[in-house]
Design a protein around this nucleic acid. Structure first.
Lengths: 143, 143
DNA sequence: CTAGGTGCAAAATATTTGCACTGGT
DNA sequence: ACCAGTGCAAATATTTTGCACCTAG
């Protein structure tokens, strides 16, 4: 898999396991909260977490994008192209697939003579649940 | 215009003039480079620049989004909805309009019961010019 | 007059980096 | 043994905030 010049260290093995045992979107901070603390077994420093996330993106295991200042990661390896709906109330990301969107993108790019490397589409709004229940708390505020 | 509870200070007048005399995308840093330095006439502190940009977004004069870590601003007031192509070589943003994209967005959102507040679509790639001329330098690198 | 606005400096956030040490191969 | 990888702490980069002073209305 990463016979790409990369060494198979215990930290990387642990991080791969941790990252691919869940399928949600996450940022560096959320990931580190799930990991062992300093002094505990399998502790990984934040520098290594950041370095590793970046490597995984380069290696095609993860994709990343910016959302409200943070860098958000999601699985990429063996996972189909998709885009996102972002609920500004519960701050959850929902996925959708649309071939029409990709076609439209290709058309636009062709018109402008653009050589596409990718795209990022995020629809902002309020999800069904949060529309129903205005009292629903934000993820963050629950903590 | 901003009889919205906001005071008409000299700083704000100056910033409005400066911001709306150009039509390019910009970030806080690029804007401040164009402004008078400390000690000069019309100097505006960076705290005020950040505060003002945020107000202008709230007031509907500007729109903002994240790109490569920075917050990028563009004119919004009286300017039509559009999306962007981003050239990863010269780092320039190009605009395009597509009603089809908006329709597609509305369909997707309707399916998922989403109440839309907006969207952001950015196509990444290499623009025509940069494809032609690989030696073309990045904006940044020229400085 | 007085609440909102500004400048300054310090703080907060998120991420990167230099460096000495460690561990994979 | 050698060099990539790691932890630590310090550095960066960007944006926000506390506070004393200023000023538009």
């Amino acid at each position: 898999m990463q016979t790409r010049g990369l060494r198979q260290t215990s930290q990387r093995k642990f991080l791969v396991d941790e990252i691919f045992s869940h399928h949600e979107h996450f940022d560096a901070d959320e990931l580190m909260e799930r990991l062992p603390r300093k002094g505990e077994k399998n502790y990984v420093s934040s520098a290594t977490v950041y370095r590793t996330l970046r490597e995984f993106v380069d290696a095609g295991l993860l994709k990343s994008f910016q959302l409200e200042g943070r860098t958000v990661y999601e699985h990429d390896y063996g996972y189909p192209q998709h885009d996102h709906l972002y609920c500004t109330v519960c701050r959850e990301l929902f996925e959708f697939q649309s071939e029409a969107l990709t076609n439209l993108r290709d058309e636009v790019a062709a018109e402008q003579g653009f050589r596409i490397s990718g795209h990022r589409m995020i629809i902002h709004g309020v999800c069904r649940e949060c529309s129903k229940n205005r009292r629903k708390k934000r993820k963050q505020d629950l903590v």
